[in-house]
Nucleic acid binder design. Structure first.
Lengths: 248, 248
DNA sequence: GTACCTATTCTTGTATACAGTTTTGAGGAG
DNA sequence: CTCCTCAAAACTGTATACAAGAATAGGTAC
């Protein structure tokens, strides 16, 4: 949304993508200067982009400190799933209401892509396509506002999975997506909604499982994340780590 | 959301309120300089506020032209109502799920205020309180994200009523609000949702009625808005030359 | 008078400067 | 060593400057 000045939009898109694909793990610092340098624009524009992403819940930008990729709490994660379920149900309802043959073709094509990506082994692409399945469904609902909100919670879900999910999380989704498409094609709203609910349930379960397993929901897992994240580990972090004052 | 730097937040709140209360009718120009002067801040901050309001759908800010208070199309208005209905249903469901005695007291107190305002004749306050009823309900749902989205569509609804609604629109709502509270208190989800649906239906009807009454739903009314808005300009130019278009 | 073209003015897009805050890190005391 | 203290470094908050794109008004040719 907001074709804005295209340049902030560019930064927005890039950051959003990077966050969603876990290239910038939750908690990564996002200093305005450095982002500006990377993107070839001044802080002014970066700042606008960060504000946008903050409103989307992908970035935390507390008053006078450096912005970071968001680390939603479990509480917030739960809220996201709750809202998402509500929106997706409505989307399914509307898509069936306005169903056209082309929809089936488009969705099936997408699922095939997902399948290929999964087999191809490119995790990044898989994650992106899995999200886009829902985004696409949102677009087919014919309600742009609904689609926007759905897009937002889908992004947030990706972030949540990055934080709390176990690896390889997007995998089993493909077959579920396929089933949903079949139900839509049959214009069976009840079945489609049930399948969607189940699908979202399994996604949520995958996310929360990590937490619940040892009794205390957050402390352990969250701390382990902190460690992981502050560690001198060799994990590649494209933008993040504070660099020594090099050029300038 | 976003305690930002408090100053942009201040501008945001002020503008939002002004737009919702129709102090700034749809289409009003909002030049950054002037707003900055008014608010005692530089364009930088005003700009951030406008961006925020744009993302909330209260302001139109096309690439290189002066921002204006938004003029949602009927199509967009329809979408807002559709999403709003979905969100409000979920809110009702959740509020009943977590119902506490205090909720009843708070909501009833609010409705009393609405009643007083209506009797007091202060249109501005009435409009604000009518919206806040729903906002408050959103807060009681316990889901902050849901509350945020609801708040957004409620604002947009006010704008839509400002554009398409007939005067005195917020009036009859009070008794409907009261009925909804009663149903909530009885923890009767089915009844509460039905009442909420009916309530929103009547609000929507009030908004759209203006359009439908003389047969053609949009053309006449929308054009009259255009004319009104381009004021000094002459009749429609017969030239093939592209005439001034607002949206799209 | 109508349709055009152009100089002028109004505004936005974006970078940059500077002040004020938070974060760091290097001593120094216990 | 560990805990403080404090100044340098790293950033953010905000205003301002300037280039560039719209809107507008004044003329000019029919």
């Amino acid at each position: 949304m907001s074709k804005k000045s295209t340049r902030v939009d560019f930064a927005c898109k890039a950051l959003r993508q990077a966050i969603i694909e876990q290239a910038l793990p939750p908690g990564t610092k996002l200093p305005e200067d450095e982002l500006g340098a990377r993107f070839g624009m001044s802080r002014t524009l970066v700042r606008a982009a960060l504000a946008q992403l903050q409103s989307e819940g992908l970035v935390d930008a507390p008053p006078r400190r450096t912005a970071t990729t968001a680390k939603p709490t479990l509480e917030q994660a739960k809220e996201v799933f709750e809202v998402r379920r509500t929106l997706e149900r409505e989307v399914v309802r509307l898509v069936i209401l306005r169903w056209r043959a082309e929809f089936g073709a488009e969705l099936e094509g997408h699922v095939r892509q997902e399948d290929a990506a999964r087999k191809g082994g490119d995790e990044r692409v898989s994650i992106r396509l899995a999200g886009e399945f829902h985004t696409k469904l949102g677009a087919l609902s014919g309600n742009a506002l609904l689609a926007r909100y759905l897009g937002e919670v889908v992004s947030r879900t990706s972030l949540i999975l990055a934080l709390y999910g176990r690896p390889h999380s997007a995998d089993c989704a493909v077959s579920e997506h396929r089933e949903i498409v079949a139900a839509l094609r049959g214009r069976d709203a009840t079945a489609a909604i049930a399948l969607m609910d189940h699908h979202l349930g399994s996604v949520e379960h995958r996310a929360m499982l990590d937490q619940g397993r040892d009794g205390q929901f957050d402390l352990g897992a969250v701390l382990s994340r902190y460690v992981d994240d502050n560690a001198t580990s060799p994990k590649v972090a494209p933008l993040p780590r504070r660099k020594k004052r090099a050029s300038k």
